[in-house]
Computed example of a mutant assay.
Amino acid sequence: MAGVDVAGEFETIRRLFAPLAHPEWGRGLRDDVAVIPSKPGHDLVLTKDAIVEGVHFLPADPLDTVARKLMRVNLSDLAAKGAEPFGYLLACHWSERCGWPERMTFVDGLRADQKAFGVALLGGDTVVTPGPASFSMTLMGWTPKGRTVARMGARVGDLVFVTGNIGDGWLGLQAAQEKLTLEADRIAALLEHYRTPTPRVEFIGPIRAYASASIDISDGLIADLEHMAAASGVGIEIDLEVTPRSAAGQAWYDGRVDEQAALESLVTGGDDYEVAFSASPRDEATLRREAGRRHLRLTRIGRVTTGEGVVARFAGQPVTIDRSGFAHG
């Protein structure tokens, strides 16, 4: 029954999480630590994200999708760095509604994505809180030594690309809150993207090989490009009209009277978990070929310039965007 804690910490670990543990490095979750051997010729890359009920997911969201979203937002960070994921640490702060069935549902989501992405649990912690549920993951991956792609490194004259579509995360939240009027299949597609975004792990190789700088799109396209521009000490110009939109996103856009305002909403909404990166113009054809081989949409959205910050253009003219994306507390 929801809200009833039917198992203590150690029983939860033994019955639910131990089967997810890495067969060697996780020590069966019977210890306070995991021991990870070094990988010769590689750097260890770590990322950490937390999600909180009422902030990053809705109380009505199924807990298996919450677990998968937690996994995928971390995978997106590693994909943008060109890192191959292998294992993770997990902290679960169960709310009073998270009884045994809810915990099992959460673990079902983890199990599905462990299999899909080839990662395993290494350890962590599980507690009960009187507040909202929250979950935190530290994901680890490998890159060949010295080959991790940073936010810094974009060069004047580089082109700026983004994978996939932009705006579906924000639109999916609107759909989950029943604020959209679209056909049922469009709503379903947006909800799926919001709850279980697709990290671009299949594009790790090309990002590592060709990107001069890279970042995953979590706070909003404009906001995250601002982070990349600041880290690289450059400016970035983007063309709002070429913002890639899914079929559902296009259907929503077609119903807007103010096209500029609609595009601004899409590029500032966040929760897309696509990858934006800069690369030399001489590598554009190769990047498009690599994306095509993976059936991945790749869009050139702008260029790296002198100056600072991000300049967004609509109909060839710069526009002022008051809010660039989600602001963390």
Score class of each variant (00 low, 15 high):
Lys145Asp: 12
Leu29Phe: 10
Gly270Ile: 08
Thr181Arg: 01
His227Ala: 12
Pro40Lys: 15
Leu70His: 00
Arg27Asp: 12
Arg303Leu: 08
Arg294Tyr: 08
Lys69Glu: 04
Ser214His: 05
Asp5Met: 10
Gly82Ile: 04
Gly8Pro: 09
Arg200Ala: 07
Ala231Glu: 13
Arg293Ser: 13
Lys39Gly: 04
Thr105Phe: 05
Arg282Glu: 15
Leu16Ser: 03
Gly270Lys: 02
Cys92Asp: 03
Pro37Ile: 14
Val275Tyr: 01
Leu75His: 04
Ala21Asp: 06
Asp108Pro: 00
Thr148Leu: 11
Leu191Thr: 04
Glu84Arg: 05
Asp272Arg: 06
Arg155Lys: 15
Val66Glu: 03
Glu183Gly: 14
Gly270Cys: 04
Arg294Glu: 13
Glu226Asp: 14
Cys92Tyr: 03
Val267Tyr: 02
Ala21Met: 05
Ser38Cys: 13
Ala116Val: 06
Gly316Asp: 10
Arg30Asn: 14
Trp170Met: 10
Asp216Lys: 01
Pro59Tyr: 07
Val304Glu: 03
Asp61Met: 13
Val162His: 02
His328Thr: 11
Ala188Leu: 12
Asp219Pro: 01
Leu75Gly: 04
Phe117Lys: 05
Leu78Cys: 08
Lys145Gly: 12
Val319Trp: 10
Gly123Trp: 04
Gly157Trp: 09
Glu284Lys: 08
Leu266Gly: 02
Asp77Met: 00
Ile222Ala: 07
Glu24Gly: 09
Arg151Pro: 06
Gly99Tyr: 02
Ala7Leu: 10
Val55Arg: 11
Ala312Glu: 09
Arg186Phe: 13
Leu159Asn: 11
Gly124Phe: 07
Val242Tyr: 09
Pro318Asp: 15
Arg200Lys: 13
Phe314Ile: 10
Gly172Cys: 00
Thr143Gly: 11
Gly164Asp: 05
Ala112Ser: 10
Ala312Lys: 00
Val304Thr: 05
Pro144Ile: 14
Ser38Ala: 15
Phe86Gly: 06
Pro318Thr: 15
Ala50Tyr: 08
Gly118Trp: 07
Glu11Phe: 04
Ile51Asp: 08
Asp219Gly: 04
Pro244Tyr: 07
Arg111Trp: 03
Phe203Asn: 07
Ile207Asp: 05
Met140Val: 09
Asp49Cys: 10
Gly167Ser: 08
Trp142Ala: 08
Asp5Tyr: 13
Pro59Arg: 05
Asp185His: 14
Leu180Cys: 07
Ala285Ile: 09
Val33Pro: 00
Val45Asp: 06
Leu191Asn: 06
Thr47Gly: 09
Thr299Asp: 03
Asp258Glu: 14
Met1Glu: 11
Arg14Phe: 11
Val107Glu: 05
Leu139Lys: 05
Gly118Lys: 00
Cys98Thr: 12
Asp43Arg: 02
Pro281Arg: 02
Gly235Glu: 01
Glu290Thr: 02
Ile166Tyr: 01
Asn165Glu: 11
Val311Lys: 11
Glu183Arg: 14
Gly220Phe: 00
Ser324Val: 12
Asp239Arg: 11
Ala91Asp: 13
Val6His: 10
Asp224Arg: 04
Thr138Tyr: 11
Glu202Gln: 06
Arg147Glu: 15
Ser265Lys: 11
Asp61Glu: 14
Gly249Trp: 01
Asp216Gly: 04
Arg323Cys: 12
Gly123Phe: 01
Thr105Trp: 05
Glu290Gly: 02
Tyr194Val: 01
Val35Cys: 10
Val267Arg: 00
Arg30Val: 03
Gly3Asp: 12
Phe86Asn: 00
Phe17Thr: 02
Arg15Ile: 09
Gly325Pro: 02
